[in-house]
Computed example of a mutant assay.
Amino acid sequence: MARALDLVGERWTLLVVRELLFGAKRFTDLVRGLPGMSQNVLSQRLRDLDKAGIVRTRRLGPPVSARVYELTERGAALEPVLIELGRWGSRTPLTSGAELSVDALMLALKTTFVPGPDFDCELRFGADVFHVRSADGRLSLARGPADGARVVAEMDAKTLRGLVFGARPVAAAVAGGELRLTGETAVFERFSRCFPRPQPL
């Protein structure tokens, strides 16, 4: 445990890993997902993670020609640790009303999932798109569009958080213009009920 904490125990380090769990990101994307973290600290954490073999950099080809950060195989192996840490932390009462980044919210779905009826949804948050599916009690969640999803939902992260953790009715979000559904509304409603907020300890 001490050796692990030497690598990932610094403040913000695991949150940087969290932001990269669903795929590579540019530095500006990481800044946006970690609004309380200074750019200098982020740069240092990325250098430390690179040195430890947890994160690597890659340059995208034309027409983008941007440098991105992504997890190595060793870094990706931290996912079950982050999920269990998230489950443990979710039982602690909230002390701030800070909004979750889209990637943080997706990991929160993984930490709170309780199997229910099957669903297959595409979630769109502007340019961020995720495919979330439950079949036979198992959840799969990945960045990218869904092939043949039964419902496509367009919203922001705050709206989804209110629907899945705040028990806001789907119909109210649709009526208010914060949620746009294409496909089977009942499938999205099934999805929204599978992530109960943990009871604080």
Rank of each mutant, 00 (worst) to 15 (best):
L100A: 06
L71W: 05
V55Y: 01
G61M: 02
T112L: 01
R56P: 04
L109G: 01
L78H: 11
R58Y: 11
A52H: 12
L82T: 05
V102G: 05
D48F: 07
G75R: 00
L49G: 03
K51M: 02
P62H: 07
R47V: 13
T111A: 07
F113S: 09
G116F: 10
L46V: 08
T92L: 14
G116W: 04
P63Y: 11
W88G: 05
E84W: 08
L82M: 06
V55F: 06
G75L: 03
V102E: 13
L85K: 01
Q44I: 13
Q39V: 05
S43G: 11
E79I: 02
G89V: 04
G75F: 02
S65F: 07
G61W: 00
T92G: 01
G97S: 10
T57A: 12
L46D: 14
R67P: 00
V114P: 01
V64W: 12
D50T: 15
T111K: 01
D48H: 12
A104L: 02
V114Y: 02
T112F: 03
E99P: 10
R45Y: 04
A76S: 15
T111M: 09
E84N: 14
V64K: 10
L82G: 06
I83T: 11
S101A: 12
W88I: 03
L49Q: 07
R56W: 15
L82K: 07
R59V: 09
R91A: 15
G116Y: 06
T57L: 12
L78T: 02
V68R: 02
A104H: 09
D103Q: 05
V102M: 08
I54D: 14
G36F: 11
L94M: 12
A76I: 03
M106T: 06
R45S: 09
P115V: 05
L107H: 03
E84Y: 11
P80H: 04
P62A: 14
S38V: 03
L109I: 02
L100P: 00
V55L: 11
D103H: 06
R45C: 04
R74G: 14
R45T: 12
V55T: 13
E99N: 06
S101F: 08
